[in-house]
Computed example of a mutant assay.
Amino acid sequence: MATIEARRNAAGRVTSYRVEWYDGGQRKRQTLPTEQAANQWKGLLEAVKHDTMAAQTALLRQVSQSPTFEEVALGHIERLINVREYTIKRYRGYIKNHFDGLRHLPVDQVTEDDLIRWIKGMTKKGCSPKTVANVHGFVHAAMNSAVRRRLRVDNPCNGRLLPKDDATEDKAMFLTMEQVNAIIDHADPWHQPMWRLLIGSGLRLGEATALLATDFQLDAVTPSVRIMKAWQEMEDGWAVGAPKTKKARRTVALAPSTVEAIRERVESAPRGKPVFSISPTTTVYPQHRQWLDAWYAAVKAADLGLEKRPRIHDIRHAHSSLLIAGGMNLFELANRLGHEDISTTTKTYGHLVPDVHFRAAAAVEQALTGIIEA
């Protein structure tokens, strides 16, 4: 327990107050000018079980004039430009749901130790390494904003703080064409043109459901569809906006079988209305939840005996794997899928390129033996 001793001069007048305590078996002393300051220091010490460093940190935080980290993070969001509203909504969700332990700290007093405790807390409550990394990325950006605004001198997020992603399960499923056909054959006939478009083009669901008849060139020398918009979630609902990235604005060539599967739906679409609706009479958009339900109903009806349930996005993976098997390289595939960075394509589909591993093994063999295959 910390104690306070009044210090007096030769005339007996109190001139200062000395606080004494033990930290790790060592006696510590601190002289303060007022009784109020001494009591404050004593209270801080006792709150942190006489940990001198922790008490000093707490004192600095009490006297800091800096805004809280939550205030800085919200300010960072307000300064963002050219960012989709869905992204803004996600960032606000991070602040609401994942800032425990950080939100009320003065931004100039947030330390690497605070971040480590915060990351451990995120992991303890069941957040995946990917979720932790995503939120940490936002925290890192907000701290960079604080540095630029001269609210602190450094970014405590720098360094290797994040947990490793040791998940052994690959979320992506690579369905065969036979499996895709089985699911589509068990789908409602009205929905089948949509699924044929997705497997034939690799479009994202939000891109496909935003298409108008004018986006298609079905009778061109090379039939195609132009992607210039997509459904996206805003702060107050859903709306059609720009695609996910700049490279997502693209033209996707369509095979004759895909054209045949979607032609009637495209040509009969009402002017200015999306081509693919969940039913002939539905006019309310968006319909993402209904399309998910329709897909899962077809998956269940097909009863393929798969270990896990394939998602709509797995149609995109199936499309990609079919193209790779047919000889398309990853650079061409990245352009077709609308990936902003080819590293995304490589990370997801690199293991499917059939001859890459063979060429690598052959190169190693040549280096080791000096033998060149004829």
Score class of each variant (00 low, 15 high):
44 L>A: 14
14 V>I: 15
81 I>T: 13
333 L>R: 10
227 I>V: 09
203 L>T: 04
279 S>V: 07
275 V>H: 05
201 S>Q: 00
198 L>T: 01
251 T>M: 12
373 E>P: 05
287 Q>H: 12
75 G>M: 08
290 Q>C: 05
278 I>S: 10
86 Y>E: 09
255 A>Y: 03
196 R>T: 00
210 A>R: 03
296 Y>L: 13
77 I>L: 13
316 R>S: 15
196 R>E: 01
258 T>P: 00
266 V>I: 05
13 R>Q: 09
332 E>A: 14
190 W>E: 03
26 Q>V: 09
295 W>M: 07
255 A>E: 05
18 R>M: 00
183 I>G: 14
290 Q>L: 13
263 R>G: 00
139 V>E: 03
292 L>E: 12
15 T>S: 01
77 I>D: 11
134 N>D: 15
348 T>M: 07
261 A>P: 01
73 A>N: 13
250 R>F: 11
278 I>C: 01
16 S>R: 10
268 S>R: 06
77 I>A: 06
171 K>N: 13
339 H>V: 14
131 T>V: 14
149 R>Y: 01
349 Y>G: 02
207 E>H: 10
361 A>Q: 00
293 D>M: 05
318 A>P: 08
321 S>P: 13
76 H>K: 09
198 L>R: 14
53 M>W: 09
239 A>M: 04
184 I>L: 06
2 A>K: 08
52 T>V: 10
70 E>D: 15
56 Q>M: 02
114 D>T: 12
244 K>Y: 00
186 H>T: 11
373 E>T: 06
371 I>E: 02
217 Q>Y: 02
357 H>R: 15
322 L>S: 11
18 R>C: 01
35 E>M: 05
187 A>L: 15
179 Q>I: 03
264 E>A: 05
123 T>M: 15
280 P>L: 06
13 R>W: 03
270 P>K: 09
195 W>S: 06
140 H>I: 03
25 G>D: 06
291 W>E: 08
326 G>L: 09
176 T>Y: 01
252 V>E: 04
212 L>S: 01
308 K>T: 05
50 H>I: 02
318 A>Q: 05
357 H>W: 06
364 V>Y: 10
306 L>T: 08
